[in-house]
Design a binder for these strands. Structure first.
Lengths: 334, 334
DNA sequence: ACTACCCGCGAAACCGCTTTCACGAGGTCT
DNA sequence: AGACCTCGTGAAAGCGGTTTCGCGGGTAGT
């Protein structure tokens, strides 16, 4: 219960026989300190087990060493391990640069909500956003000069750095695969169309379709919301209206799994009668029967890219968007 | 790009015609300020759009308003949405008290690692631990007086507050269900036995077994690691050594799903030939075919309980461990 | 040899808020 | 009426670093 007193610059400075200013310089890697003195400081730091108080440091320097990861709170966020994985990638990269990750899960819609206040309050040195439904907040924050990175493609063409998976390319490849497998009537269950990722995947699907010279029949495009239930619902509806569909491209594996379940429940064989392709290559892709043919995205890489972009930005470097590639993983469902 | 200057106490104090000390009192809810002056301060705050600098506040008061959520980094952490869900529960509760969550995912084994340093550095007001493989770090930190909460039962009987699911009761109920369904040769695939949760679930299984008057045959107890792969591996091995098993209790749904997959691949029917019960009632429990009979735990409640305990502790209240109940969910697999 | 620089380093101000301390006004008690 | 409190309040001293500023000495230029 005894709060052990931690040494301060005063103590270190005395022990090393230098001024506090010099201690600060050494500890912040200022090259202009004489090596001998620097060594003395380091020795004092080591022997006294000194650790810098980051709060005081933050106050004095105006830099907190904290990066916020903001996830729009839509309950699905955590039911899908996707974001957790991205976050761990971000976190790892940031910690390599001595930065910490502050996770914020809350509704981000409001330009003026708690999150906005917090971010503007200067407690964090930067913010990384996931799952944006609107660019309003980001636009607003931009004025404050806060370094930001968006995971996912922004809606408007802001000059805010972003990282994203090649959604278009992935969806194109997935749909193309279905076509190559001989499917003729291919439906798509999209994600929440309010997200750019969902739109891009839809575009990829349309592009692949277009190249066949055909146009997807009305009603083959359903807007889901990335949930298992929506995958099931839409598949049911599709079967009613188009009993002859022979392919389904789902914008994520969860919905693909729902589709498979419903198809089988209605007596259809997968992949014999209807082929299904998912997206993500989430764990669930391997547990369905048959296992899902899907588009793998390198989720960890995505997180790392976001972290990298943030660091580059903090260093004042020029920053370009990063698009990570996808890969078609062929399993049993198509 | 212009960092908009934010007003400080000096400005507010002038505008309200009071001293900075009074501003501080008002903003920290000190009752002893005359209502009139308090009102003037509030008006000034509102009209000037003042927002307190939490860093300065933290330095001066010694309280940061940050709570660390420490997750032992074992890559499986994020492949299972479980922890993300708990975290969101924690986060929500804490934010209601004006506290923020700092997520730290890293190996916690070392008593002297980076995490330990960070926690000791006084940058956080408290720490919540998930998935502890050892109590060493926590024991060590305890000396520093840092308020802590452990999610999961501690190994040693420390007097550190913890929250946990009724692992024993859940496993007992699950195993009992298998027995009631007529299973006679029931195997268990445990989680990493280094965690108390895995041990408790094993104990629940053993207890249910014991009550039948029989003793589980050797080789019916396999130590898995909560991963899909380990569920599959152990099921394969079980089938080789004990082709006649008719029940499997898996310590989580992921392993249960792996078991179902392998069973079906080897031509066994679930639940006709072998019944399977999982634990968690994760999303995956609904996507396997047949869907999993499982033990549901209220994950969000667990997180909320952890947050609640932390807040109580910060308030100096007396704190008791919280054990959340489980529920048997019967689906197709058993 | 004299002035002009440059460099390493310490003194001190400062970051924005909290908290102790003491003071004066108004009340109470004898 | 005088001694003793209580209560609201402001002045000022920190919290533990960072950073500006300027000084003294060594180097260079002429």
């Amino acid at each position: 219960m005894t709060p052990p007193p931690r040494p301060t610059y005063t103590v270190i400075a005395q022990a090393a026989g230098v001024s506090e200013a010099t201690v600060s310089r050494v500890l912040n890697g200022d090259e202009s300190v004489h090596p001998d003195r620097a060594r003395r400081v380091h020795e004092a730091v080591d022997s006294l087990g000194y650790r810098k108080n980051r709060v005081a440091s933050a106050l004095a320097s105006g830099r907190s060493g904290l990066i916020a990861v903001v996830i729009d709170d839509d309950l699905s966020v955590f039911s899908d391990p996707f974001w957790g994985t991205v976050t761990s990638g971000v976190s790892r990269i940031l910690s390599e640069s001595g930065l910490h990750t502050v996770l914020m899960v809350s509704p981000v819609g409001l330009v003026d909500g708690g999150v906005a206040h917090y971010l503007k309050s200067g407690e964090v040195d930067g913010a990384i956003f996931f799952v944006l439904h609107s660019d309003a907040l980001v636009n607003n924050l931009k004025k404050s000069g806060l370094p930001m990175v968006i995971a996912g493609t922004p809606h408007s063409s802001l000059d805010i750095p972003f990282v994203d998976t090649d959604n278009f390319g992935g969806a194109y490849a997935g749909t193309k695969h279905l076509i190559n497998q001989g499917c003729e009537k291919i439906a798509i269950i999209t994600g929440d169309i309010g997200t750019t990722a969902a739109k891009q995947r839809l575009d990829g699907y349309l592009q692949a379709f277009r190249e066949t010279g055909k146009v997807p029949a009305k009603g083959l495009i359903c807007e889901g919301d990335y949930s298992l239930a929506s995958g099931m619902d839409h598949t049911r509806k599709l079967l009613e209206k188009h009993p002859d569909i022979d392919g389904i491209f789902a914008s994520n594996d969860l919905m693909a799994a729902g589709a498979v379940t419903v198809l089988q429940d209605t007596g259809k064989l997968v992949p014999e009668d209807v082929k299904v392709v998912g997206f993500d290559d989430a764990l669930i892709a391997q547990t369905t029967r048959p296992a899902l043919t899907t588009i793998r995205q390198d989720v960890v890489a995505l997180g790392e890219a976001a972290g990298t972009l943030m660091i580059a930005q903090l260093n004042g470097e020029d920053v370009q968007p990063i698009i990570t590639t996808t890969e078609l993983i062929i399993r049993g469902s198509a």
